[in-house]
Design a protein around this nucleic acid. Structure first.
Length: 196
DNA sequence: ACACTGATTAACT
DNA sequence: GTTAATCAGTGTG
């Protein structure tokens, strides 16, 4: 299994986001491995991006978005859900990619238990769903995805797919940026609706 | 197929 | 005090 190196993440966030499609997210809990293919992501930046948590600068919550690239930014939202992002750009410049959906690969039975759902399509087809399926919460905020044994990214095998884009889901600002990217025709993409 | 709502927390203004 | 990078369930057409 070839892990993604630090240099993978040190670039303009929308570019990294597109390259992240088709790669693997791996969660290890004890001896158990849960993994999936990234099929939907969204890019967020900083001062130039009104939809970003980092738009108004650094705060205790978003500080990972300003640190070393390749780390996990995990936040809690709507009083219910955790979301997983990957830090990009470079130290001191805000950037992160929200992982919005996975095509489950390993550990599907465990994911079903974690989610309380049987249909594979319901396991990780949304940002809050995938963190529940993989048992990701704020204890993993700041985790180094380049080195961690508990949560990391690896090279995917399939590269033959069509990348589609749209505006980002669940935000009403920054609609001019088409920074949501997903694999065309993939069954595991979330069914959230972009405004454009 | 689509719209609306309740759930529940914490960060931010 | 308000809002949020969401989800599941319910009601309507």
């Amino acid at each position: 299994m070839e892990r993604l190196p630090r240099s993978f993440f040190e670039d303009y966030t929308p570019s990294v986001a597109k390259r992240l499609l088709g790669q693997l997210l791996v969660r290890r809990i004890g001896r158990r491995f849960l993994s999936g293919i990234l099929v939907e992501v969204e890019a967020y930046r900083g001062r130039d991006d009104p939809a970003s948590h980092a738009f108004r600068g650094e705060t205790p919550r978003n500080r990972v978005m300003f640190g070393e690239v390749g780390k996990a930014y995990v936040y809690f939202t709507y009083g219910f859900h955790h979301c997983l992002c990957v830090k990009t750009e470079r130290r001191g410049v805000a950037g992160a990619i929200l992982v919005r959906a996975l095509e489950p690969l390993e550990g599907i039975e465990q994911m079903k238990k974690n989610r309380g759902k049987e249909e594979v399509r319901e396991l990780a087809s949304g940002p809050g769903k995938l963190t529940q399926a993989l048992k990701i919460d704020r204890r993993l905020n700041g985790e180094d995805l380049v080195r961690s044994e508990r949560l990391f990214l690896a090279r995917g095998k399939d590269t033959a797919f069509e990348i589609r884009d749209s505006s980002r889901i669940g935000v009403d600002r920054g609609l001019e940026f088409r920074w949501r990217y997903f694999i065309g025709g993939n069954q595991f993409v979330s069914r959230g609706k972009p405004k454009t």
